[in-house]
Design a protein around this nucleic acid. Structure first.
Lengths: 209, 209
DNA sequence: TTTTGTGAAGTTTTTCACAGCG
DNA sequence: CGCTGTGAAAAACTTCACAAAA
């Protein structure tokens, strides 16, 4: 079944909220209350959840633990993805220590950089290799996904190196340039300065009116 | 005029690409070529640009420098926004040094944290204050926008402190929890782990098929 | 009575397709 | 002829509104 991207995004939010509710000992929750907390219409919440079968109880709501397990299953991964972090600068280091990026669905198995000061060292128990060695290391470690935190001008080069390994399946990029990949490689990511520009744009709008 | 969010997002991308083209000395570009580079349909590019008047030349394309100036105007800000960075951890520090976040539309005028080790010091010439002092400092410095890079559990508290100043107009958040604000405060942001979950979700989909 | 699940309606965004201008 | 600008169509996404279940 094809699940729309906005729905996946909200599922992750439902999942987090449900964990919190579960920890607080709450047993049951309505679409209304989920929506209130997450800033969504109740009908949106119900529609999202309905794509995956009837999970709620009419007149009652959703059983917190049951719905939690249900969404965990939807979001679950059939394998543990091995990842490489490319670009051990400020942002890369930040991500390495970022709690919300811990998960049992993936693990960062190698770091890559071009700085001779960093290559050969290790950070958080993960050793750093030269970008040139990506094809070999990715093959050896079966790394299929990379997190890209390199400067814009280096992005495409690093991606090409990763592609050389023949294993690359996905990229999480923080680089503010589009990268070119074959159609079977997925690219998701975040462009921080775009978010900033959006904020400034709509702040301006309000300023005028 | 109301401009849709997806359009603003793409305008930022056009703007960057045009800068690059301009630096390369290119004089003219077609919607086709813009789309090819940025992964968009030519019709999408033309539609976006048409919202702001007829700027291209039929049979020719868009004049790079003219279009560049045009989009700069659209994205321009009527003021220089003063911002505070709340949470001087790994991510906050990374953003401070992040090149793509430099702009003449805003400046980071103060740092805030709760760690006594950080309060009183300064980073990149910007001094760090205690979160408790946000209301006063924000008033003194006329800070109207905050960048939130605090742990999830601290987010709402920091936002409430910022609201106390009476100046808060916008938030750029990196926190994986929704924050509650009055309707006249804009919130944009990025949830890194949501992007990761999306990537993993669609990787899984491909795995199956 | 309460709250879900869901077709149908509504809204937003993208794509098409072609007239119109250089 | 080539490429833009743009109504109209299509697709994607959200909201409504109500029947049905607990």
């Amino acid at each position: 079944m094809r699940v729309a991207e906005p729905t996946v995004e909200r599922l992750v939010q439902y999942y987090r909220f449900l964990r919190q509710l579960h920890e607080e000992g709450r047993r049951v929750i309505s679409s209304q209350d989920i929506g209130l907390t997450l800033g969504l219409k109740a009908s949106q919440v119900r529609k999202d959840l309905s794509y995956f079968g009837e999970i709620g109880k009419r007149g009652v709501g959703y059983h917190v633990e049951r719905l939690y397990d249900h969404i965990r299953n939807i979001l679950s991964s059939p394998r543990v993805w091995k990842m490489g972090l490319v670009g051990v600068g400020h942002l890369g280091t930040a991500l390495l220590g970022y709690n919300s990026l811990r998960s049992d669905k993936f693990g960062i198995e190698a770091l890559f950089d071009v700085d001779p000061q960093k290559v050969g060292t290790s950070l958080g128990g993960i050793s750093c290799h030269h970008v040139e060695d990506m094809p070999r290391i990715m093959q050896e470690k079966d790394i299929r996904v990379i997190i890209l935190t390199v400067p814009a001008h280096a992005a495409q080069y690093c991606v090409d190196k990763a592609l050389e390994s023949g294993r690359l399946r996905g990229i999480l990029t923080f680089t503010p340039v589009p990268v070119v990949v074959p159609r079977d490689v997925l690219v998701y990511g975040v462009d921080i300065s775009v978010e900033m520009e959006k904020l400034l744009f709509y702040l301006k709008q309000e300023e005028v009116s």
